[in-house]
Design a protein around this nucleic acid. Sequence first.
DNA 1: CTTAGCTGACTGGCTGGTCAGTCAAAAATA
DNA 2: TATTTTTGACTGACCAGCCAGTCAGCTAAG
Lengths: 209, 209
Amino acid sequence: MTDAPTEILHATQCALCEHGYADLTMQDIADETDLSKASIHYHYDCKHDLLLAFLDHLYERFEERIDDPDGETPAERLCALVDSIVTERSDAPAFQTALLEIKAQSPYDEAFRERLQRFDDAYVEAVREIVEAGVADGSFREGVDPDVVASFLATFVNGVQTRHVGVGHPLDESAEAVHTYIDETLLVESSTGNATGSSGGVEIGGASE
Amino acid sequence: MTDAPTEILHATQCALCEHGYADLTMQDIADETDLSKASIHYHYDCKHDLLLAFLDHLYERFEERIDDPDGETPAERLCALVDSIVTERSDAPAFQTALLEIKAQSPYDEAFRERLQRFDDAYVEAVREIVEAGVADGSFREGVDPDVVASFLATFVNGVQTRHVGVGHPLDESAEAVHTYIDETLLVESSTGNATGSSGGVEIGGASE
DNA sequence: CTTAGCTGACTGGCTGGTCAGTCAAAAATA
DNA sequence: TATTTTTGACTGACCAGCCAGTCAGCTAAG
C-alpha cells in the first residue's frame, strides 16, 4: 500500500489516460482511488497544484528512463533514446495525447511551461552527450555538431508525437525515418551496414490501433 | 461588410487567438462581432459545428497558401514551403497554440481528426511533388525517396510548431535546421552553395484583416 | 483530548443552449 | 399604391448541468 499522495498521483495518470486533460475532473481522479474528491483537496490544495506535482513526479521517472540508454555503440544508444519516446508502450497512446494537451496549455501557464522546459532540456542534453561521444569515438562524422543534431532530433521527436496524436501517423514509420536519418546523416559511411539494431524490416501500413 | 456567417468565422479566429481553444466560449466569439451569442447559435447550430466550419474555412486558405510556393528551383520552393509553416508572423504564436490545442483534441473527435488529416495530406503531397520534381530535375540526389522525405519533413514541421508552443523553442533556429537538412541530405553536393533563401513566409492561419 | 485523515453535502460561478418575442424588409393581398 | 402577412435575422433573459472548491463533522489512532 502506498501513501495517499502517491496513490493520487498514480490515479491522476490513469484518469488522464481515460479522460484526457481537457475533460479531467477532480472526480475522475477520485474515482481511480479509494478516496473521495474532498480527500484529494485535503492532500493537494487545488487542481493546478496536483497537476504540477504530477508533472514533477513524471519528470523523475523520465529522467531515469533517458539516463544511460541501452546499447553498445553511440548509434545504438542514440536509437534507443529516440525509441524510448517514439516506440509505443502499453498505455502510451492515450497518455501521449494527454501530454500534448498539456503542452498546448503551456503558453497560458508559466508553471507548466517551466516543467516542460525541464523535460526538453534533459532530453536534448541526453542526445547531445551521445552524439558527442559518437563523434569523439569516430563512429559519427566529424562535421556533425552535437548541439545542432540534438536540437534537430528533439524537434523531430516532438513532431512524431504530435503527428501521431493529431492525425494518427504510425509511430513505427516515424521510428524508421529517424533510424534512416541517423544511418545516412550521422554515421560515417563504411559499409552500408546499419548499426541501427532496431526492429528489422518494419514496413509501412501497420494499422495502429 | 461581409455576411454574418463569414464574420463569425473571422471572429472565431480572433477569439481563438485571445483565449485559446480550451477557454473559448461562445460569448468570447460573440464579443468579437456585432452580434449576440444567440445570433451565433442562429447561424451555427452548436459550438462544435462552428468549429468544424472554421476548420473547413481555414483549410481553403491553407490549400491556396501551399499551392505553388515561391522559388525557381525545387530547393527554393521546398524551403518556401517549409518556411510557410515555420516562419513567424505577427499574430502567429497565439494562433499556433490554438491549433495545437485542437490537434490534441483530435483523438476525442472524429470530425476534427478528419479535418486535420486533410491538412496533413495536402501538405505531405505538396512537399512530395516538389521533391519529386527535384529528383527528376537532377538538383536532388537520385537516392531520395519523395514519399519518405515528404513524410519526414511533415513530421519535423509538426515538431517545430509543437516545440515552439510547448517550450518556446525559437522558430528561426528550427528553420535553419531544416535548411541545413535540405542542403546536406537532399541536394547533390556541387558547390556548397545553399539555394536556401529564407523567404518571408506564410502559414496555416494568416489572419487577413 | 487532540489531531490527522477523510467524507457527504453543499455552494457559487460559469457556459452551452433555448425560447418567446422584437423588428425591418420582402412578399402577398386588396 | 396602400395594407397586411410572412419571414429571416436577431436578442435579452433564462435554464440546466457541470465542476472546483468549502465546510462541518465523523472516526480512529496516539
